[in-house]
Simulated scan of single mutants.
Amino acid sequence: MPGSDLAIEDLESNLGLTFKDQGLLKQALVHRSYLNEHGGSPLDSYERMEFLGDAVLELIVSTELYHKLPGITEGELTKGRSFVVCRPSLARAARRLSMGKHLSLGKGELESGGQDKESILEEAFESVVAAIYLDQGYEAARGFALRALGPEIEDIGRRRGRIENPKSRLQEMVQGMGLSTPHYRLVSTEGPDHQPVFTVEVLVDERVLGLGKGSKKTDAERAAAEVALDQCEVADFPQSMAAGEPIAPAQSGGHLADTAEAFLENPDSDSTNSATSTREKPCSHSSSETGKTTRPGPNKASSEAGNGGSAASSMFSGPLTWMKRFGKSSKKS
């Protein structure tokens, strides 16, 4: 089995755990491409563990949100879970724990940036959860998952009204103020062809409210919308917009993008990647890449949020209240 004992001990230190059977942790890091080149059965890869880890994670996060957020509906809990147990969130957590450098990958996958590929990091994270569960039981797996995903879970409690598509949320807010529909503009494309980074800005009445980055244009747009929503929450924002005052565009990387490297010292930090909420399993599991079924994610409007906006407004009543008041007063004048 690949992975030296020294490297495994280094990862155990990052995870905050010592395995009884290190073989489980080693297998949780073996990608199928490694076995294709070095020999071995597909059953020796992490794929079966990924299947189990996904189920364990769903139970852990569902239970935590159920107790942490007693005042929200079943539909909102589902969206919250999908926000946490999704590709970008799990990949961010894997990066914070430096899982990528411990992966066993085939040469081709390694050369194409597999150690930092979102889909692989997400799968590895789920597999490690399964390895902990098999080695030490549910409570140990729960403790690890809540530590590793602490920033994402805390963010749900802090931004409950943002669980649905932030682009839709931003449009609802600015139109409630009597402003024009937000539109998105590509600023730049950087990085190699196989791993591009898009920078997008969101504009309202031709004023830039936020900049976002992502590995896909849609991810960058969502990140920019998140930043713009932060701008909208500033107390004097409506007056500034009404007066035509310049608005300083903020960069993506606010609530979920502080210092990734400092995670082990400060569990409230996060990666410098934008707060994207879709994975190729679009904040759920994608059949195109893994053959798994799809579950509802935050990029898909729920019936609760679409029913007169009651679900969203009930969880985000503060900013919406003054925006609606401003919108009404501006229309009268």
Rank of each mutant, 00 (worst) to 15 (best):
L77S: 01
S82N: 14
P88R: 14
L103M: 15
L77Q: 06
S119Q: 12
F125D: 13
F83E: 02
E123C: 01
R96L: 09
S82K: 10
E111P: 00
A93H: 05
S98E: 04
K79L: 15
G80N: 07
F83K: 11
E122R: 14
L103Q: 10
G100S: 06
R81A: 04
F83Q: 02
M99D: 00
A91N: 10
L97N: 07
L105I: 04
G106Y: 05
R95K: 06
E118D: 13
E123A: 11
E111T: 11
T78L: 09
G113R: 08
E109N: 13
R81Q: 13
M99R: 00
R87V: 04
V84A: 01
R95I: 00
A124N: 06
V85A: 10
S89M: 05
I120G: 12
D116H: 02
L90M: 15
P88V: 05
P88C: 08
V85M: 09
G114K: 04
K101T: 12
R92S: 15
T78W: 01
F83C: 04
V84R: 03
L105E: 07
G106L: 07
R96M: 15
L90P: 10
A93V: 09
G108T: 06
P88A: 11
R81N: 08
L110S: 10
A124W: 02
E123L: 02
G108R: 12
T78V: 03
S104P: 09
K117W: 12
I120A: 12
L97E: 06
R87W: 00
R92E: 04
L90I: 08
S104M: 11
C86P: 01
E109K: 05
E109I: 11
C86Q: 05
L90C: 15
F83S: 12
L110K: 09
V85Y: 03
G114Q: 07
K79W: 01
L90E: 15
L97V: 05
L97F: 11
A124L: 01
L90K: 12
A93M: 06
L110M: 09
L77R: 15
V84T: 04
R92K: 15
R87P: 00
R81V: 13
H102E: 12
M99E: 02
H102I: 03
D116L: 04
L97I: 06
S98A: 12
R81Y: 08
E118P: 06
R96V: 01
L103V: 05
D116F: 00
V84C: 08
H102G: 03
S112E: 02
F83I: 02
K107A: 08
M99T: 02
L90H: 11
K101R: 14
G106Q: 07
S112L: 07
S104R: 11
G106K: 08
K107W: 01
G80E: 10
K117Y: 14
L105K: 05
C86K: 00
K79G: 07
A91R: 11
T78Y: 02
G114M: 09
K117I: 11
F125W: 13
L110F: 07
I120Q: 14
E123Y: 00
T78P: 00
E109R: 03
L105R: 03
K101H: 09
G80A: 11
R92T: 14
A93R: 13
R96G: 15
G100D: 07
A93S: 11
R95T: 00
S104T: 12
F125R: 13
E123G: 03
E111V: 05
K101V: 09
R96W: 00
L77G: 01
E111L: 13
K101G: 07
E109M: 10
G113Q: 04
S104H: 12
T78E: 03
